[in-house]
């Protein structure tokens, strides 16, 4: 499968970053190479085996439903330059 310039463009948009044409070019080249390399592994019939998505096989854990302290409001807002006394601000969103 070939990768196109526009696919790189879409991926950049989906990652919400802007790339220069040179960066797109380079990325296209790298992505293509990796895909080719991966294709060489095809013959080993990988489709039949389970994917590993986790760092180990220990099962997940559960927590009791007990309330713990939330952050004080001042700390919640401390790292934002765009906030009033309670809320974060974002550019106006008009839905519908």
């Amino acid at each position: 499968m070939k990768i196109s310039n526009s696919e790189i463009g879409n991926a950049a948009w989906d990652a919400r970053v802007k790339l220069t044409p040179g960066e797109v070019e380079h990325l296209l080249d790298c992505s293509q190479k990796i895909l080719q390399e991966l294709n060489l592994v095809q013959k080993d019939n990988l489709d039949s085996i389970k994917a590993t998505f986790f760092g180990h096989e220990q099962p997940g854990s559960l927590r009791e439903d007990i309330i713990t302290d939330s952050l004080p409001l001042a700390k919640v807002l401390a790292n934002s330059l765009y906030a009033d006394e309670f809320c974060f601000h974002v550019p106006k969103i008009i839905e519908e």
Partner: peptide
């Protein structure tokens, strides 16, 4: 209607002041 959020211990109580039931996880 659990007491806490899905992945952290913040309260799910309705009607609190904005951003007072939050922690590093849910923020």
């Amino acid at each position: 209607i659990t007491g806490t959020k899905l992945f952290c211990g913040c309260s799910t109580a309705f009607g609190a002041d904005p951003n007072t039931n939050v922690c590093p996880v849910c923020l």
